[in-house]
């Protein structure tokens, strides 16, 4: 999601994106704790953005993908795709 939203990846936006894509409702604190874990593992990094009136004058914490994060994404995708291609045709009949 962080990658999808690119420049606008912060807590609420990520939650909304998740909800609109999967139909699941996720509590904002759950999003925060996931982001916190990803940041600890070095997959994403964060920087504070601009304050807005809607946020009671608080700044956004904007997340961007790190190099390790990109590698991890690619690794996950490769893993899925190789597994996908190895599903025998019979399964689909």
């Amino acid at each position: 999601m962080v990658a999808v939203l690119h420049d606008e990846a912060y807590g609420v936006a990520i939650r909304d994106e998740l909800t609109s894509r999967t139909g699941r409702t996720v509590h904002i604190s759950a999003v925060h704790s996931s982001l916190n874990r990803l940041e600890k593992k070095g997959f994403i990094r964060s920087a504070m953005g601009e304050p807005t009136a809607e946020r009671g004058g608080r700044r956004k914490r904007l997340f961007t993908l790190t190099g390790t994060g990109k590698q991890a994404l690619v690794a996950v995708r490769t893993l899925r795709e190789t597994a996908w291609h190895q599903i025998p045709e019979v399964v689909w009949q």
Binding site: Y10, G11, V12, I28, M48, E54, R55, R58, R59
Partner: peptide
């Protein structure tokens, strides 16, 4: 304005590094 007490509670308990972000998000919601 949103109720003040829960914010005060957050301020009392939370680490300053994460506080601003959390406060912003709950305000926005």
């Amino acid at each position: 304005q949103p109720p003040g007490f829960p914010l005060r509670l957050l301020r009392l308990l939370c680490r300053p590094e994460v506080l601003e972000d959390i406060e912003g998000d709950v305000h926005e919601i």
